[in-house]
Amino acid sequence: MQSEIIVVSDTHRFNGYLTDLEKAYPQADLYLHLGDLQDDPSRFPKWKFVRGNTDDFFPGQLMPSMRVVEKDGIRILMTHSHKFSQSSLKEELVRLAQENSCSVVLYGHTHVPAIKNEQGIWMINPGSPSIPRNQSQPSYARILIEDGEVKPELIRQEKWPFKRISRTE
């Protein structure tokens, strides 16, 4: 049995990407957004959200700042990570994952994609499809769960299964 999870963060009002991802991965089991949507989350009923630092407006205030989701026995912690010290981010996210019995932490805010395994915990930042930073390319993440094994990957723009003409369409 295999499950598929699509993860995006920091779309900053350029939310056509969410529709693109739904169409490109109609079979996905979960669609997760890690904050800085800057839009009404009810417009995207297939997605689960956490609140980012730019989502502090109504109805963005209704999004939780952190949440745990579970798929096929894998517990996944979602956070935007803006409330954590960037100098100790890794340690704080590992601690939070351990406290919540999670083997995967998804975080955003930096707009820089990353996948690392720290102390047996997958730490995944999908980057940003609309406003990448630090010379990174636009990106999102895809996670496969197969027989209890987590298989994360970053999908950079040149490998996207869709073509977006502009960020705003």
Rank of each mutant, 00 (worst) to 15 (best):
D39N: 14
V68G: 05
F44L: 00
K71H: 04
Y25E: 00
G73W: 11
S65W: 09
D36S: 06
D29T: 10
T11Y: 14
Y25R: 00
R67W: 05
L21A: 05
F49M: 02
H12R: 02
L77I: 14
F14H: 15
D20M: 03
M78S: 03
L18S: 03
R13Q: 13
S42M: 03
L77Y: 07
F58S: 11
D29M: 00
F57A: 11
T19N: 05
G52L: 13
D40G: 11
S65N: 10
V50D: 04
L30Q: 06
V69T: 11
K46F: 00
Q61H: 10
D10L: 02
E22P: 03
M78V: 09
R13I: 08
R67G: 00
K71T: 12
T11F: 14
M78L: 15
L77H: 06
R67Y: 03
G73D: 06
L32G: 05
Q27C: 02
V7T: 07
A24K: 04
K48I: 09
S3D: 02
F44H: 13
V68C: 07
L32N: 04
G16H: 14
G60E: 06
A28C: 05
D10I: 11
L62Y: 15
D20Q: 09
G35F: 13
E22S: 08
R75G: 09
D72K: 14
M66F: 15
S42R: 15
D36W: 10
F44C: 05
F14M: 10
P45A: 05
H33W: 12
R67A: 14
D72R: 06
D29R: 00
D40V: 05
N53P: 13
R43T: 02
L21C: 07
G60K: 07
D29W: 00
G52I: 08
V50Q: 01
Y25V: 01
F58C: 00
V8K: 01
S9G: 11
D36Q: 12
L30H: 07
Y25A: 00
D20P: 01
Y31E: 03
P59T: 10
P45Y: 08
L32F: 07
Y31T: 00
M63F: 12
I76S: 02
K46M: 01
K46Y: 06
K71S: 13
R75Y: 10
N53M: 08
S3C: 02
D72M: 12
M66H: 12
P41K: 06
E70Q: 14
Q27Y: 14
K71A: 05
I5A: 05
L18T: 05
I74V: 15
T11E: 05
G60V: 13
V69A: 01
I5Y: 08
G35K: 09
